[in-house]
Simulated scan of single mutants.
Amino acid sequence: MAICDWPRGEGPRDKLLQRGAAALSDAELLAVLLRTGRAGCSALDLAMALLHRAGDLATLLAMDANALADEPGVGPGKYAMLQAAMELARRSVEQHLKQADVMSSPRRTRQFLQHHLAAREREIFSCLFLDSQHRLLRCEDLFFGTLDGAAVYPREVAVRALQYRAAAVIFAHNHPSGIAEPSAADRRITERLQAGLGLLDIRVLDHIIIGRGQAYSFAESGLL
């Protein structure tokens, strides 16, 4: 059944319009995006089936087209719609960070990084390059690894920072395990990066580790 065919006032779209998007469950929000289900299965039923298969919303949104193609009723159009929604959310937060002092809004910074890194299946080391007012100049994924880690090269970070004329940086990487706790290697590379960039008068403001629904800040933990 399509969303538009639900009895007036009873469907997730009507609920959203009457009570706001925050009042909807993950399945109901997903149903609004999907719009239609399949034969004998409403959009809400399809949304619930997808969430059950993936385990949670973040994992579902990270699935590629081939993985979703096995689910009846999900074709390229629905996959494109889900990816577009995810990218719109990421860009919305990124644009705010480009207009304001990143350090004055740690919640938005973490929200952006969650959108950007949390659902990745391998470890990715990203850098947020900031100007002298701590506004975002660029976010760049610099190093890619396996489930166990990524090799990080301070020289490459320095080259990029100089290229963008950054006055400060925030490092971020994800832990595919979902646990946002720093390893001994995370601590060592942070110290090396801080020492190397310090020689160039580029401040390291934070290193944030992104897990599943959680984040660890080196700055807040007194490690910077």
Rank of each mutant, 00 (worst) to 15 (best):
A39G: 09
A67C: 01
A39I: 09
A49L: 15
A65M: 01
G55C: 11
C41I: 01
A49Y: 06
T36I: 00
L34I: 01
R53W: 10
A58Q: 13
L68W: 00
L61W: 08
R35P: 03
L60D: 07
D64W: 05
A62W: 08
R35V: 01
A62S: 15
G55D: 11
G37R: 04
T59Y: 04
G40S: 00
L44Q: 05
L60E: 01
A58W: 12
M48T: 04
L57Q: 12
A39S: 11
R53G: 09
N66V: 14
L68G: 01
A43E: 00
G40I: 03
A58D: 15
R53H: 15
A69R: 11
A69V: 06
M48S: 12
A58K: 12
A39K: 14
D45W: 02
L68D: 04
L61A: 10
L44Y: 04
A58T: 14
A54E: 03
A54L: 05
R53I: 12
D64L: 02
L57I: 12
L44P: 13
D45R: 07
A69K: 07
A58F: 07
G37S: 11
T36M: 02
D45S: 03
M48Y: 05
L44A: 08
G55H: 11
S42A: 09
G37I: 00
A65D: 01
A65C: 05
C41W: 00
R38Y: 04
C41G: 05
L46D: 04
M63E: 14
L50N: 09
R53V: 12
L60Q: 07
M63I: 05
G40Y: 06
T36F: 00
M63N: 08
S42T: 15
L34R: 03
A43G: 04
L60H: 10
L44K: 07
A49R: 06
G37V: 06
C41F: 11
L50H: 07
M63S: 14
L57G: 08
S42D: 00
A69H: 08
A62D: 13
T59F: 08
L34D: 01
L46G: 03
T59K: 13
A69P: 02
L34M: 12
N66S: 14
A65W: 06
A49G: 03
D56K: 11
L61N: 09
S42I: 06
L44T: 13
L51I: 15
A69M: 04
A49V: 13
L46F: 12
R53E: 12
L46M: 01
A49P: 05
G37T: 03
A65P: 08
L57Y: 13
R35T: 05
A58Y: 10
L51K: 08
M63V: 04
A62P: 08
A69F: 05
